[in-house]
């Protein structure tokens, strides 16, 4: 198995649960996410145990800042590093939950999240999912197989 074989039945409930319980906003699948947006802020997490590839969570810079401001409720200023850390945490939560569901008899393992920015052109061995929060915010999740 590889990451791109983690199907919608696993990833969609995991993503919606993490977003809803963290941001208190309903989320639903929406394939219109723009992966070519040059302002994207993203975080990638390697799926180590089982070794399947990587998960990437992405959203636009403006939407990432809006999510941060809502989540922190004004307690902290939305600087670049803090916003990247928030995306790392969401990516980590989604990746961990997805891995944990694959095999209940194997303790799952992840790498540390790694934040980045810029468009994400299609990659070989990749499966993409888009999501929209009830306030209109869009996020994308990409599952990338080991190459």
């Amino acid at each position: 198995m590889n990451a791109a074989e983690i199907d919608a039945q696993i990833i969609e409930p995991v993503v919606t649960e993490v977003l809803e319980s963290t941001l208190f906003l309903a989320a639903e699948p929406d394939p219109s996410f723009d992966w070519e947006d040059g302002s994207l802020r993203w975080s990638t997490v390697d799926l180590h145990r089982p070794a399947l590839g990587a998960l990437v969570l992405a959203t636009s810079a403006a939407e990432a800042e809006a999510i941060f401001t809502m989540l922190w409720a004004g307690e902290r200023v939305a600087d670049e590093g803090a916003v990247a850390g928030m995306i790392d945490e969401l990516a980590n939560a989604i990746a961990g939950q997805a891995l944990a569901q694959l095999d209940p008899h194997q303790s799952p393992g992840l790498g540390l999240p790694d934040a980045g920015r810029g468009a994400l052109p299609p990659a070989a061995g990749e499966r993409r999912y888009g999501f929209r929060l009830e306030d209109g915010t869009r996020l994308g999740v990409s599952l990338r197989a080991l190459v």
Binding site: N92, A93, I94, A95, G96, Q97, L99, A100, Q101, D103, P104, H105, Q106, S107, P108, G109, L110
Partner: peptide
């Protein structure tokens, strides 16, 4: 942790 399933909890 997000990395929690039956095996991880037992461990």
């Amino acid at each position: 942790s997000s990395l929690v399933n039956e095996a991880a909890e037992e461990e």
